[in-house]
């Protein structure tokens, strides 16, 4: 069984982002970039399925600038077998990502596509569900446990009131939540090996996909700052503030 895992290059989750002065976006020059954390979880899950003898091949995919090759090399070092970069300088929104992935899925014929549930830059949480729709495949979003057997995936999902277990027929889409697994670190020998694994480069045009954006960003601003609070000396002072100043108890 072949598994596709799309990975996105994003501002590292430890970086405190800064809004650009001209309000066109967030500063990304000279900022540490990494693989989206949910996508690391997706790669890890695919590698585990391969180690368990369920998956036979893992193809990592990224969409964006040349530098996304670094993100793909990380995926290869974690255990993906080969990689595809859809190289483009355009602003690619989730619907366009889903269309590009659909085109690749048509060529690759995977049984499973595992994606992060959201990217921590635009926080959209759309691509997996959109890809499932375009392929007319079932979807198991926000996965915290995955079991594959008898042509089905049984997936435990994180939902608002607790947990839900769904059974979906393969081929299918799974999106990862935080507690699905703990991604491994790439070891030095594996990083060296990853440099020799195949990495193909294609373009949206070669895949025949129109990636024109549908959403126009008019401006990006910083959130309103909370006013600095006060430190209180003891519980009595806190109670006094809550009762008489904030009036919330």
């Amino acid at each position: 069984m072949k598994i596709l895992v799309p990975v996105k290059r994003v501002v590292d989750y430890n970086v405190k982002v800064r809004v650009k002065a001209d309000q066109t976006g967030v500063e990304t020059a000279n900022v540490k970039m990494s693989m989206n954390p949910f996508d690391e979880i997706a790669i890890e899950e695919a590698v585990k399925l391969k180690e368990a003898g369920i998956a036979t091949e893992i193809v990592a995919i990224s969409i964006g600038a040349t530098q996304c090759q670094e993100t793909l090399r990380t995926a290869l070092a974690m255990g993906a077998d080969r990689a595809i970069l859809v190289e483009t300088a355009a602003d690619i929104q989730p619907l366009a990502v889903a269309k590009l992935l659909k085109a690749i899925a048509a060529n690759e014929a995977p049984q499973l596509v595992i994606l992060g549930k959201q990217a921590i830059d635009d926080d959209s949480n759309q691509t997996g569900q959109m890809l499932a729709a375009l392929l007319n495949w079932p979807q198991a979003t926000f996965a915290s446990k995955v079991t594959i057997a008898n042509g089905e995936a049984e997936v435990m999902r994180e939902i608002d009131g607790g947990m839900e277990t769904v059974a979906i027929k393969l081929p299918a889409i799974i999106t990862t939540d935080l507690r699905l697994n703990t991604p491994r670190y790439a070891t030095l020998p594996n990083i060296m090996k990853a440099k020799k694994k195949p990495l193909d480069i294609v373009t949206p045009e070669s895949l025949g996909v129109d990636v024109s954006p549908r959403l126009k960003t008019l401006k990006v601003v910083e959130p309103a700052k909370r006013k600095g609070g006060v430190m209180v000396a003891n519980v009595a002072a806190l109670i006094d503030k809550l009762k008489n100043e904030a009036k919330v108890i």
Binding site: V11, K16, V17, V19, V26, I120, D121, D122, D123, L215, K216, T217, L218, K219, V220, V221, E222, P223
Partner: peptide, 10 residues
Amino acid sequence: IYAGNAFATV
């Protein structure tokens, strides 16, 4: 966007 560290008008 960015975990609420920025707000985008779209």
